[in-house]
Every structure is written in C-alpha cells, then in structure tokens.
Measured scan of single mutants.
Amino acid sequence: GEEMDTAEIARQVKEQLIKHNIGQRIFGHYVLGLSQGSVSEILARPKPWNKLTVRGKEPFHKMKQFLSDEQNILALRSIQGR
C-alpha cells in the first residue's frame, strides 16, 4: 500500500470531529472499533507510517476512508445526536 501521512490524517479527523461535534468515543466505536483511550492516543500522537505494524496501520486506513466520504461524517453526526 501507499505510505500515509498519519499526522495529517489525524489532524483532519480531529478537525471533522470538532466541526461536527462528534465525540471520540462514538468515532472510535463506529469507525475504528477501538476504545476512546486508543482513539485519543492515535489522534494525539500518531506514529509515523513506517513505524506502524500492519495492525497499527488499520485505523489510518479506516480514518482515510471515513474522510473520503462526507456521508460517513453525516451518519456519525446523526448517531451522536440521538
């Protein structure tokens, strides 16, 4: 696969979550399948791509996919709003 700019992906995700008022817990649960603790760690201190294991890269693939389609963001927003 291609190398990803993990810091940039994390920054964009944080931006979207704040902009749409989506909590990290909801994002972690529905998008990444991770706990809030793992999510906040990944978003606060993303490791460089070449330092990640295959498993460590997974959340970034999912985040990139999440960012690529605004429908994903809107869907999360409606879950959050319940």
Rank of each mutant, 00 (worst) to 15 (best):
K19L: 07
S40L: 09
M63I: 05
R25D: 15
V31S: 01
I73L: 11
S38F: 07
L43S: 01
L34C: 11
K51E: 15
T53G: 12
Q12E: 03
R11H: 09
G81M: 15
Q71V: 07
I73K: 04
V13T: 07
G56I: 06
E3N: 09
A44I: 08
G33S: 05
Y30H: 13
G28C: 07
Q36A: 13
L17H: 00
K62W: 02
I22T: 02
A44Y: 10
S35V: 06
I79H: 13
S35W: 05
E41N: 07
S35F: 09
L67K: 00
H20A: 05
R25S: 15
F66A: 02
G28E: 07
E70N: 10
K57T: 04
K64R: 11
R11N: 07
R25W: 10
G56K: 03
I18G: 09
A7W: 08
Q24L: 14
I18D: 14
Q24S: 09
H29Y: 09
A44S: 14
K57I: 06
E3A: 11
T6M: 00
I26E: 14
R55F: 11
S40Q: 13
K47T: 12
R45L: 06
F66E: 01
F27E: 01
A44F: 10
F66Y: 00
K19E: 06
Q65G: 06
A75P: 05
G23A: 13
V39P: 03
I26W: 10
R82W: 08
I26N: 06
V54R: 12
S68F: 07
K64D: 04
A10M: 00
Q36Y: 11
E58P: 01
K64N: 07
Q71H: 08
E58V: 11
E2W: 07
R82G: 15
V54I: 13
A75C: 09
R77G: 10
E15T: 08
K57E: 04
N50W: 08
L34E: 07
Q71I: 07
K47P: 11
R82T: 12
L34T: 07
N50P: 13
Y30I: 12
T6I: 00
L32K: 00
T6G: 00
E8I: 07
A75W: 13
S38D: 15
I26F: 10
Q36V: 12
H29A: 11
L43D: 02
E70F: 07
L67D: 01
Q36H: 12
I22Y: 00
V31D: 01
T6Q: 00
K51D: 14
E2N: 12
L76D: 02
W49K: 01
A75G: 09
G81A: 14
Q71G: 12
Y30G: 03
Q80V: 13
S38H: 12
N21G: 14
L76H: 00
L32A: 02
G23Y: 09
K14R: 09
V31L: 04
G1K: 12
P46F: 02
L67Q: 00
P46K: 00
L67F: 05
L17T: 03
G1R: 11
E70H: 13
G37A: 14
G37W: 11
L76C: 04
G28W: 02
I73S: 13
Q24R: 08
A10K: 02
P46Y: 03
G81N: 15
A10D: 01
T6V: 01
Q80W: 05
G81L: 10
E41G: 05
Q65T: 12
S40K: 14
G37V: 11
A7R: 10
P48R: 04
E41F: 02
V39K: 01
A75Q: 14
V31T: 04
M4K: 05
R55T: 13
S68Q: 11
I26D: 14
I18A: 13
E70T: 09
A10Y: 01
L74Y: 09
I22W: 03
S68R: 08
